[in-house]
Computed example of a mutant assay.
Amino acid sequence: MKKHGMLNRDIASQLAKFGHTDWLVIADCGLPIPEHVTCVDLSYRIGEPSFETVLEAVLEDFEAESAFIAQEINMHNPQLETTLQERLDCRYVSHEELKMMSHSAKLIIRTGEASPYANIVLQSGVIF
């Protein structure tokens, strides 16, 4: 059994397939999921697991060189925006653009988060 890193076998297996500049989306429970993109759905009730819990677990095992969040977060979820900007240097895109970016993602991880605009696109970096 794995001792460190991502224990979820579906997420761990998908992350192992990532290359430089591939996109990973961590989504709230309301973000539309494109049918052609692999989705690991972790949600089991409203709010569980939280966006922040899943993001922290992913970032322990994933090298993100950049991040994108919806500009609408600053009006509708400023506390999460502050947390994200402290953790990552996030670039802003419109929510519509973020949804379009999700169509090019290699993986979407769906959380149970139910707060507004709790979505992020992480661009894979390299570890060397």
Rank of each mutant, 00 (worst) to 15 (best):
K106S: 05
P34G: 02
P116C: 03
N119V: 07
M6F: 13
A57R: 13
E65L: 15
Y92W: 09
K3Y: 05
N8Y: 12
F18R: 13
R87A: 12
I33T: 01
S50R: 12
E81Q: 05
A16L: 04
T83P: 06
L55I: 09
S43D: 04
M75P: 07
M101E: 10
V93W: 15
A16I: 02
E52N: 15
L98D: 05
G47D: 05
D61I: 07
D89P: 13
H20C: 08
V37G: 00
H76R: 02
N77K: 02
N8V: 06
I26D: 10
I46P: 10
I108G: 00
A12W: 01
Q85W: 01
I73N: 00
V58F: 10
N119T: 12
N8W: 04
L107E: 03
G30Q: 12
T83G: 11
A70I: 03
H103P: 03
A114I: 13
A118I: 13
H103Q: 10
I108M: 05
A67W: 11
G19K: 09
K99W: 13
E48G: 09
F62W: 14
S102D: 05
S50G: 13
I73C: 01
L24A: 01
P78V: 01
E48V: 06
G125I: 06
L31G: 07
L84R: 08
E60N: 08
R91G: 13
C90E: 09
T82L: 04
E35G: 00
T111E: 07
Q85L: 12
H103W: 06
T21I: 12
E113D: 11
H4K: 15
E52T: 14
H76K: 09
E97T: 11
L84T: 02
K17Y: 03
M6I: 15
E81D: 00
E113Q: 06
L122Q: 05
V40P: 02
F18T: 02
P116M: 07
N8I: 10
G125A: 08
Q14T: 04
Y117C: 15
I46S: 13
L31E: 04
L24W: 02
V58C: 08
Y44T: 13
E60C: 07
M75A: 15
S124R: 11
V121A: 04
A64E: 12
H4G: 11
I26H: 04
F68I: 03
H20G: 08
L107W: 04
F18V: 10
G47E: 11
G30D: 00
P78F: 04
H20Q: 03
S102E: 11
T21R: 08
L7M: 12
S13N: 14
G47A: 06
V37N: 00
T53P: 12
E35T: 02
P116R: 13
L42Q: 08
S124F: 01
I120S: 00
N119L: 07
S115M: 15
M101S: 03
A12D: 11
L122N: 08
L80Y: 03
L88N: 04
G125R: 03
L15K: 08
G112E: 01
P34A: 02
S43H: 01
L84F: 03
M100Q: 09
I69W: 06
M6K: 11
Y117R: 00
L7G: 14
M75S: 15
K106G: 14
T111I: 12
I73G: 00
